[in-house]
Structure formats: structure tokens, C-alpha cells
Design a protein around this nucleic acid. Structure first.
Lengths: 229, 229
DNA sequence: GTCATATGTCACGTGCTTGTCACAATTGTC
DNA sequence: GACAATTGTGACAAGCACGTGACATATGAC
């Protein structure tokens, strides 16, 4: 029997997800806040946790960080739920140790497939969480980027930017979209600031001859692509 | 062009939603029952469907389940409309495979944002939207145009012009109409400027032998057509 | 405190885009 | 053919978008 711990404060959403997961044959434990979650996790030893971004007593991210500090829960697959669709949250969420994230409203079919995927992975051997695109390799766990084994020195903003690009390659994003996705909607930053970070990202990639991956599309924005040129 | 299939039996509501969506720039196909919906969906290949909970010949949920059984429509974003606000409906609706739901009366602004959100999500991870006409391929996501794999270098205005032509082929448009559609109604630009951009578009397409697609209709305007000549 | 690092903003220069014009070329009419 | 109307095309200037170095501020380590 597979146990899933669901931490979500909104009763309606929680009930909906619980109901759906039970229908799929999982055993579901619920918690409305972190306090409840702590005891539930100790009692139930779940195989997977679904955690809301916002919880009454502590941000979901904080709770995941707390979990990761403990040996036993270091491998526990966690799916983060967030109402905010910003990619920024995604990165922070992933960075914090969540294995996956989803935005609300939750598409249940998507949730099922993510749950299955995570369980499959955790049951096999915990392969590392690394993103590859062309010669570029990003390891979100260790927060590092490398080209053919050699480390790329990169700032935090550039890291987030690169993470977004690597998960959304070959598409043009306007400055304003990039600000939304990488910086977050609530942050007020000049659009031209994007240019500067693009520049810094290119500089960081240049020694590896990978700066061509960051492409300017005049009048439209920027694009990241594996095929340099 | 984004196509939305609207399945709703009440004419008043249907008309209202259709009107609003068209105003927002979507192409809308309508169906009053599941039978109509089936043929519409086969003809139109919509990018998103809005389905009423209660339909004359079959519950909307059933129809969605039916859709999900087919490979091609497994990923089709579906928004469910329901008059009943009960939680139960939500669960059943979402469980059936709808990606989102809304209760009537429909708040149009909310509908728009949900439509946008779902489209964004389905596009982000789904296939990219590419326009094809003859040997010409335009990929709006990567902001690129190509003929048989080879990239066509093109300015931004020419890109917009070509995009309009590719979505509206085989029809003659006067200079003034083209200005309205491509430049926007609020911009004041000489009509003859269109000629210059037509020229530039032809020049860009010439190396690929595709300049003949842009046709002059003396006294009337220009036309774009797949069959060169 | 000092220093280093990271980040957002600005100013400046450059090259490309774009709208406009003038003139050439084409088309249609008589 | 002559003529007018229409369209094609090269040139050009203004403006805009972008790259980039410099700077101010914030943050944190020591």
C-alpha cells in the first residue's frame, strides 16, 4: 500500500485531492498545517508528500527544508502545490528540496502522473536531479552548472534564469515574461535589467563556447537553444 | 489562431461567452449538444474546450471521459461549466478529466484568465504552435520562419505581416486593411509603406523561391497564397 | 568596522529597423 | 503608341533596440 501525505489548509482543495487519490488506490493522510503534518509524518511514514506552498503556520518551503535536514526524510518525494504560477516559485521550490511542483488549480490527471513518476523514481534508485541541454548540465540539487565536467561560475539570478531557459528551450520570451517567470510577478524591476543578466549569463558561458545558446530575437525577447549559432 | 470549442445548450449563455471570446481574439466553434460537439471537434481541432455540465444528450462529464479515452484528445484542456456549486460536482468534474471548472453565472474576466492559464500550460509542455503553408513554416513560439528547415531572415514587421498572411491566406487585403490588422488601428502610417514591407518580405523569401507567394492584386491590394504563380 | 560579492539601474554608443520619399517600372485604357 | 494610374525599388534619416561598462546599493563574511 502506498501512503501519501497531503498537507493543504484549504478544506475544499484537500478534500478534492484526497478523494481523487483514494479513488486511484492510494492511502491518504491529511494535514491542515505543519504541526499536524509533523505528527502525521511520524505516525504514517508516507511514501510521498504533497505540500501546499502556503500553510497557516509556516511556508511549505520551510517545512520541506526542515524535512530534508532529517536523514530519514531526505529521500521522501515531495510535490509542491502553488497558487502562483511563477517560475520563480518553482525554482525556489525545487531548490528547497521539492521534487516536483504543480500550480493550482490542480489538474488531477497531471497530479496522478507526477505522483506515479516520483514513486517510480524513488523506488528505483534515486537518480540525480540534473537537467541537460546540449553540452550544458545543471544540477539543481547541488546548485551547480557545468560543461563537460568543468564548472561554470554563475550568480544566483543567472542560475534561476538559466534554469528557466533550460526547462523552456527554443522559445522566445519577452523581457516582461522573463521578469514574471524568473523574478516573480510581484517584484518590480526594470525590463532592461533582463539584458544585464543575459549579458552576465553569456559572459559566464563564453569560456565554454556556449554563449551562443543565449539568442537575442530583436523586438521580441530572448531564446535559449541547444544548437548554437 | 487559437480555437476554442464551446459546448453549451443554452443559447443565451453560449452566445454571450462566444461573443466575449471572439472579442478576445479567439476563434470559437459552437455545439449545443454532444452530437454536435463530436463533429465539431473532428473538424475544428480545437486548442481548448469549454463544456457545460448538463447537456441534452449526455452529461458533460461523460463526454469528457469519452474524450480522454482517445489518444489525441488526452491533452486537450477542458474547462467545465456547472450551475451547481456543490463540492461534489467539482470533484466529479475534475476527476473526470476536466482541467478546471467554473460555476455559472460565468464571470467573463475569470473565464479569460482560466483559458489563458490552461493554454499557457498546455503549450508550455505540449507541442509548439507552428503554422504551415506550402513549404513555409512559421513557429511563433521560437519566433522563426523557415523553408525546408532553412531559416528565413526577416524583420519584425515582416514577421507580423507574414503571420497575418499565413493565418489569412488566399484572400485579398487592401493596404488600409493590412495597416489595420498588422500595424494596428491606432497607428498612423502611409499606405505606401505597406508596399515597402511587401517588397522586403518578397526579398526575404526570394532565396527560397517563395517570393511568388506574395501576390499583387492591382487596384485591390495583396494576397498570400500557397500555390505560387 | 572592512572587504567581497551580487544585483539593479543608468548612460552611452552602435547597428539595425522602419517609415518616407523620389523615381523607375509596369499595367491598363483609349 | 500615348497617357494615367498603380506598383516596384533604392536610398536615406530618424528612432529604437540592444550590448556593455560603470556605478550605487545591499548583503553577508570575516
Amino acid at each position: 500500500m502506498t501512503r501519501i501525505l497531503l498537507i493543504e489548509d484549504e478544506p475544499a482543495i484537500r478534500e478534492m485531492i484526497r478523494f481523487a487519490l483514494v479513488r486511484e488506490g492510494y492511502e491518504v493522510d491529511e494535514a491542515g498545517d505543519v504541526a499536524e503534518a509533523r505528527s502525521a509524518i511520524a505516525d504514517a511514514h508516507p511514501d510521498l508528500a504533497i505540500v501546499d506552498w502556503m500553510l497557516p503556520d509556516m511556508p511549505g518551503v520551510e517545512f520541506i527544508r526542515e524535512l530534508r535536514r532529517e536523514e530519514i526524510y531526505r529521500e521522501l518525494p515531495v510535490i509542491m502545490l502553488t497558487a502562483r504560477a511563477e517560475e520563480y516559485d518553482k525554482v525556489k521550490g525545487l531548490d528547497s528540496g521539492a521534487d516536483d511542483y504543480m500550480t493550482k488549480p490542480v489538474a488531477l490527471r497531471e497530479l496522478f502522473s507526477r505522483v506515479k513518476a516520483l514513486l517510480r523514481r524513488s523506488r528505483g534508485y534515486g537518480e540525480d536531479e540534473s537537467l541537460k541541454l546540449g553540452r550544458l548540465v545543471m544540477d539543481t540539487a547541488s546548485h551547480s552548472v557545468s560543461v563537460e565536467g568543468k564548472a561554470v561560475t554563475i550568480g544566483n539570478t543567472e542560475f534561476k534564469l538559466l534554469h528557466f531557459f533550460m526547462t523552456h528551450p527554443d522559445r522566445v520570451y519577452s523581457r516582461s515574461k522573463l521578469l514574471d517567470f524568473v523574478w516573480g510577478q510581484s517584484v518590480f524591476v526594470e525590463e532592461r535589467t533582463v539584458d544585464v543578466h543575459i549579458l552576465r549569463l553569456r559572459k559566464a558561458l563564453k569560456p565554454f563556447g556556449a554563449d551562443g545558446m543565449v539568442q537575442t530575437v530583436r523586438g521580441a525577447g530572448y531564446r535559449f537553444s541547444a544548437n548554437v549559432g
